[in-house]
Computed example of a mutant assay.
Amino acid sequence: MQNLSTGLLWFVAALCVLFLTPVPPARAEEVSSFPLTLAREKNWLIIRSPRLPRGEIRINYLEAYCRPDSTTADWHKTTIGHKTELVSLSDDRQTMRLRCTVNDGVVVDHEIVASDGEVSFQIRATNPTKVASAATWAQPCIRLGDFTGFANEGGDLDDYLPRCFIFLDGKLTRLSEVRPWAKEARYTPGQVWCPPGVSRKDVNPRPLSPLVPSHGLIGCFSHDEELLFAVAFEPYQELFQGVARCLHSDFRIGGLQPGESQSIRGRIYLGSNDVQRLLKRYERDFPEHLKNAMK
């Protein structure tokens, strides 16, 4: 009987420890981001997670490689044809390798890695030919209709602008609040922001804003404002809001001489609506962007 009583007391004590011991709160990192995986369908790079609206974000990757002198040119004369091949996709669907062969002979290798709340891009463009390449920049077209809560096609093509943002004068500015808003170009609607150091003759032939972005981050909020998406590349040619309810940070190649290579890196951020956390992650990955913005 004494052994039974002692055992019962130990059992009660264990229950007290179990239920009364405070549970440490989840780390901000754990609740602010979520695992992502990758898929490839035709020319679509697909980022997937059950946490995303409709479960995915689709990117036309890559939409185009582009020549210089593009701002006022016919789009079909600006683009250089290319073919993209899926080289490999890991069993956990978190590491993808692609190879683009541009029609002028340039080869572009892409390593894309998904993790918790981020997708990283390591890109290497090489010109193995004996002729200079005019490939100056490239467009990953990120479709965000589903994410922002609007149709992917048709209707008012500017309806998602209140959910989208860039940074002007160091402050997050929703695109619906950007003034002035350029409206004239070879093709409309849309909006292009050209960063310092890039010729305004060499960007998308959509309305070109007179405003210069503070840095290379562009993004949007989900339809319920609970999630946040953002993207940046280095070096980058332009920030662009387009007609497919898309956002672009288009990366710069700069044209390649025979035998020349260019390295590019990029990052997509996904997580809870926490702008300060986003900026810390961005500063970690692209310190030169914020350094240049402070000059």
Rank of each mutant, 00 (worst) to 15 (best):
P53W: 05
Y61F: 10
T79N: 09
E85Y: 12
Y61C: 09
S70N: 13
T84C: 08
I80L: 08
A73D: 11
I80M: 10
L86M: 12
A73C: 12
R58P: 04
K83N: 10
T72L: 04
T71S: 13
P68A: 10
T84G: 02
D69W: 09
V87C: 01
T84L: 08
C66E: 15
L62V: 12
S90M: 02
T72C: 03
L62D: 10
Y65Q: 08
D69R: 12
H82Q: 01
P53D: 04
C66D: 13
L52A: 04
N60T: 09
S90C: 03
E85N: 13
E56C: 06
T78L: 11
S88M: 01
T71G: 03
D69S: 09
V87L: 09
E63A: 07
K77F: 09
A73W: 10
T71C: 06
E63F: 12
K83A: 14
G55W: 06
G55R: 01
I80F: 05
E63H: 08
I57V: 12
L62N: 11
R54T: 15
T78H: 07
I57Q: 03
S88T: 02
K83C: 09
L89K: 01
L89A: 05
E56V: 03
I59F: 06
H76G: 14
N60R: 08
D91Y: 05
T84A: 03
P68C: 02
I80C: 06
R54C: 11
E56H: 12
Y65L: 02
D69A: 11
K77R: 13
Y61I: 04
D91S: 14
T71P: 01
G81N: 08
H76A: 14
R58T: 03
L62M: 13
G81D: 06
S90Q: 07
L89Q: 06
D74Q: 13
Y65A: 02
K77P: 06
R58S: 02
P53H: 03
P68V: 00
D69T: 02
L86S: 03
L86I: 00
C66K: 15
E56Q: 02
E85D: 15
K83Y: 06
S90Y: 02
S90P: 07
H76M: 14
Y65W: 07
A64L: 05
L89H: 01
S70H: 12
D69P: 01
R54K: 15
K83R: 15
H76W: 15
H82K: 05
D91F: 06
E63G: 01
C66T: 14
D74F: 10
D74N: 14
T72K: 07
E56L: 05
R54W: 13
R54N: 11
L86V: 08
G55T: 04
L86K: 13
G55L: 07
A73K: 11
Y61W: 08
D74C: 12
T72I: 05
D74T: 11
W75G: 01
R54I: 11
E63D: 06
